[in-house]
Simulated assay, not measured.
Amino acid sequence: MKKIGFSGTLDPITNGHMWVIGEAREIADEVVVFLSENSAKQPKFSAEQRKDIIARSCAERGWGNVQVMIVKSDYTARVAKRHGVDYLIRGIRTTADFDYENLIQQTNVDVIGGAKTMFVMPPRDLGSVSSSFVKALEGPVGWNWTMKKFVPPPAYQEWIMSWLRKEWEGLWRYAKADAAAVAHADQWFERLTGSGAYGGAQRQYHNLDHLVHGLAEIRTWAANVGPSARDANLVRAAFWFHDAHYSHAVSGALSNEEESAQLWLKSGLDADMADDVALLIRATDHFQSAAVSHPLKQTMLSVDLAILGQDEEVYSHYAQGIREEYRHVPADRYPVLRGQVLTYLRQKALDGTLFGDAFFAEQYNALAIANMGRELRALGQ
């Protein structure tokens, strides 16, 4: 078969969709993804954004024989037929899917004279994956780690960037800010999420995933504890900047935390919060934070350490990310150095002092002890 088509809104494209496209490539020389632009729906991403995400997702897998076409105000099956595509391929997960798709395919062929449909059944691990399923994951602590399993990397990247953008705009009250303030804040958003900070290729743990996770933790803490709006925003602002500067190289006499605090002070984003936020950033230097005094210090430290108390799968990804971020450390030295850090933190957890904020201690202390113990054993320590 020369051409086969695959159609949908694909907001976002999932690993299930990618599987169907992969099946289509086994059948035909060329695959055309017909991307529906439905005015009745309110997608998260525009049609052009979705087209770019799909194209990058396919290119990432080396699929050079896949093209993407946006369909506006027309029947996809009819557009497909006009472009020399006689068959559309659809994934069937349930009997309900079959009943729906069968009705659509009858309409496509008998009513509008469009392309016919062939059905394929995805493997069991993709049977429940859909765009609506993925969308429903967003929000709670750890949502990003879960979503990451079900969408290709370009879709995941765009999704978390969209989420971070909303968090950023809410923090700096874009709705009430003037154009100059918005432009200034935009520059800092690009800087923090770009290649020189959390978006850098060298960042294997202190990256955008880490940023999303921490901000979700703060959102949950604020919803349950009920701090003042100012206090919640202090912690949010500090977390955005706390690892903005992260380097293994010795840079003068300043620590990464101090470099990040200085960067925050230079940003000029909020003069009223400047000194408070700088103190909270400095508090994330866990080996020197005793000198930092601030009412929200323990909350900030707890947010930064919350990753230690996640479920085993998330913790394993964290531990792997740390190893990759410290890949410059020789294999014979890493277990010793990492073991020293874990032993110190685990003892604090055993003593009940790892999470100074009671909200985090109740949720994460026991899991942190178990996780760090397991990693120490894996390191032979």
Rank of each mutant, 00 (worst) to 15 (best):
H213Q: 10
N371I: 06
I369Y: 02
V341N: 04
V314T: 15
Q340Y: 03
L263D: 02
M121H: 10
R333Y: 04
M300I: 03
V250A: 12
W221G: 05
F45G: 08
S128T: 08
D272A: 15
I322S: 13
R236F: 06
R203K: 14
E37S: 14
H245T: 09
G321R: 11
G91Y: 01
M161C: 15
Y87L: 15
D270V: 00
Y315V: 04
R78G: 06
Y156M: 12
L10G: 05
G356F: 08
A223W: 03
G380M: 02
A80E: 13
R282T: 00
Y364A: 07
W188L: 09
R338I: 07
D332P: 02
L350N: 13
A181H: 09
A274C: 03
N108C: 03
W145R: 10
A80D: 13
A179N: 09
A274P: 00
K41E: 13
P227G: 11
D29I: 00
T284F: 05
F189S: 05
A283L: 04
S36F: 02
Q157L: 12
M121Y: 11
D97K: 06
R124P: 01
R203P: 08
V314F: 00
A378I: 01
G22L: 07
K135Y: 00
R90C: 13
P122R: 06
G5A: 11
R346F: 03
K176S: 12
D243N: 14
L164N: 10
L211G: 14
Q310G: 01
D52G: 04
H286Y: 15
K135P: 06
P123C: 05
N108E: 02
S46I: 08
N365H: 08
G352A: 13
Y344Q: 12
G16N: 08
G16I: 06
W168V: 03
A253C: 00
A232M: 12
G380N: 04
Q288V: 01
I281A: 07
L345I: 08
A238G: 07
V66S: 09
W240Q: 03
Q42F: 03
E169S: 12
V129C: 02
W188Q: 10
G5Q: 10
I89D: 05
G16Y: 02
T193V: 14
F133E: 12
S130Q: 06
T76N: 12
I21R: 06
V31I: 07
Y326K: 13
L279I: 00
Y326I: 01
L192K: 08
S46N: 09
I13A: 12
A368Q: 08
R173H: 15
I112P: 01
R236Q: 13
F287K: 14
L254Q: 13
G352M: 11
H317A: 14
R90W: 05
I89C: 05
P335Q: 06
L126S: 08
A244F: 06
D276V: 02
L376F: 06
P335S: 07
Y100M: 10
A291S: 15
T353W: 09
T107V: 08
I4G: 01
R165V: 03
S7T: 15
